[in-house]
């Protein structure tokens, strides 16, 4: 969770008509880039996208409904570093246009009803505090109750330091919440996007039944800088990228952003909606 190296590296969606690809340095026409799911047509670099954009490219436009927006952040420890936490929250809200680092929607993927959780890296590095934990917890409980598949897109630097130990406890809370889904045989799919590190990676991100990642996404427990400082070695090229994890056998697949919606449709069908057609006894699986 010493992983907030990402804070200072800004790869947000830039304004303006032309966008430079940070990978191949090609100048790209922004509306084209947008049509291409914010993937560089030249080199396939996947830009980081915000939560709302993610929802737009994942869910069908009709029948979307936000969930658990009533859960709002507060400052339980009256934490103050160079700035008070309350001020950071305010700034994050203004900057990112979302009210916390995770949003949930009930909606449809090609007409299949699902609940989708989307993290937003622009909100204090997508860090997990009490609100992320509670919204995720409620989503699991809701999906278990309503028997709806849950899909979560992760993007996080780790735990939220300003909530200190309470943020650490969210790792326990979110992990146990996954048990509600397992108990009912409800599929839980995680899509790891750039970056997925620390406390989020080491809790609900890696507890998915199916775990896939976007190309080039940085995924791991410890931040690269921390590892380098600890072992005093240069890290191998491509270390902690989605492709690296795939090679090591840690994730199911790496899926291009334009294919993701289709993939999710298939998975939701195969694990759930179509699986039911076999009419096999639903195992009372231990969580």
């Amino acid at each position: 969770m010493k992983l907030f190296d990402f804070f200072r590296r800004k790869k947000n969606i830039p304004e303006g008509l032309w966008t430079k690809c940070p990978s191949c340095k090609e100048l790209l026409y922004t509306p084209d880039l947008k049509d291409n799911f914010w993937v560089c047509p030249e080199c396939g670099y996947h830009f980081r996208i915000d939560a709302k954009t993610r929802v737009d490219i994942t869910l069908d436009p009709e029948n979307r409904k936000p969930l658990f927006g009533e859960i709002k952040p507060t400052d339980p420890l009256m934490f103050e570093d160079l700035k008070p936490y309350t001020k950071r929250l305010e700034e994050a809200k203004n900057k990112s246009k979302v009210d916390e680092a995770i949003l949930f929607y009930k909606g449809e993927i090609y007409k299949r009803l699902v609940v989708v959780g989307v993290m937003d890296f622009n909100f204090i590095g997508g860090s997990m505090g009490s609100v992320v934990g509670e919204r995720f917890f409620r989503a699991c409980r809701y999906c278990a109750q309503k028997e709806l598949p849950l899909i979560v897109f992760t993007a996080s630097g780790g735990a939220r330091m300003q909530e200190s130990i309470l943020s650490l406890m969210q790792m326990a809370k979110t992990s146990l919440a996954v048990g509600f889904l397992r108990e009912k045989g409800i599929p839980y799919i995680t899509v790891l996007t750039d970056p997925t590190m620390g406390g989020v990676s080491a809790s609900f991100a890696f507890l998915g039944d199916i775990i896939v990642a976007e190309p080039g996404a940085r995924i791991g427990f410890a931040g690269a800088r921390v590892i380098e400082q600890t072992i005093k070695q240069k890290l191998p090229k491509g270390f902690q990228t989605a492709e690296f994890l795939l090679e090591k056998g840690l994730i199911d697949n790496v899926i291009h952003r334009k294919d993701l919606k289709n993939f999710l449709k298939d998975m939701v069908d195969m694990l759930f909606y179509k699986a039911k057609e076999w009419n096999l006894d639903r195992l009372n699986a231990t969580p």
Binding site: M171, L176, S201, A202, L207, F221, A222, V226, L235, L250
Partner: peptide, 26 residues
């Protein structure tokens, strides 16, 4: 803390911790 190392990541430190939390919870 859990070890920040190359092999630790290759062997999925995240998953090992997540699973351990889960196991203890239930």
């Amino acid at each position: 803390g859990a070890f920040p190392g190359i092999e630790a990541e290759e062997h999925n430190q995240s998953k090992a911790i997540a699973d351990s939390i889960y196991t203890m919870a239930y």
